[in-house]
């Protein structure tokens, strides 16, 4: 599921980047990586596979070919259909992620069911989350505004997890009773 979302938004992101003018595949990759790919840069294969899909769909066209061979010689331009596609994509809100199947919660229940110290599971997870938050906070100190926003987005999600951990810790005894009584 997250994989499909990622692939779809790579196509849209590349289209969006093409709106400012035609570009070669490698140029597009570099530009994508700079803006969106700090932790996970695109593979060239991904870029060319996506571009050929967009080409087939009529969302981009080949604007020119530099002499030589290989896919990196082609320059791509967005089509009118491509622009409309970007517009439609921006206008449609993303489905909020529900987090209803969290590994964190599963671990907690299994720890309670098997009589292991669930509080330790929570505390260790909390320490791990905070370590990641520290690393992101340090990174924010040196990054530009765009990178700070990327970090902040991640930080707010981690903070939400931590609040969940805090709440779970406060209700551990009650949860233990529910979990062990209720089901076979």
């Amino acid at each position: 599921m997250p994989c499909i979302v990622a692939v779809m938004s790579i196509g849209h992101a590349l289209l969006g980047l093409l709106e400012s003018g035609p570009r070669h595949g490698y140029d597009l990759k570099r530009s994508y990586d700079e803006r969106f790919g700090q932790d996970r840069p695109l593979h060239y294969g991904q870029v060319y596979a996506t571009l050929s899909r967009l080409l087939k769909g009529g969302l981009v066209e080949v604007d020119g070919v530099t002499p030589g061979d290989g896919p990196e010689r082609k320059r791509y331009a967005i089509t009118t259909a491509g622009v409309t596609d970007v517009e439609r994509w921006l206008a449609a809100p993303e489905k909020p992620e529900l987090y209803l199947q969290s590994t964190l919660y599963t671990k907690l229940v299994i720890a309670l069911l098997t009589g292991r110290p669930a509080a330790d599971v929570l505390d260790r997870q909390r320490a791990e989350h905070l370590n990641t938050m520290r690393a992101l906070t340090r990174r924010k100190a040196t990054g530009d505004l765009a990178d700070q926003l990327v970090c902040d987005h991640a930080l707010f999600h981690l903070e939400a997890d931590l609040r969940f951990l805090e709440l779970a810790a406060a209700r551990l005894d009650a949860l233990a009773r529910t979990v062990t009584e209720a089901r076979p």
Binding site: H129, L130, M133, T137, E159, L162
Partner: peptide, 9 residues
Amino acid sequence: DARVAAYSD
């Protein structure tokens, strides 16, 4: 606040 605590060592 975990975001505040993230400034600590």
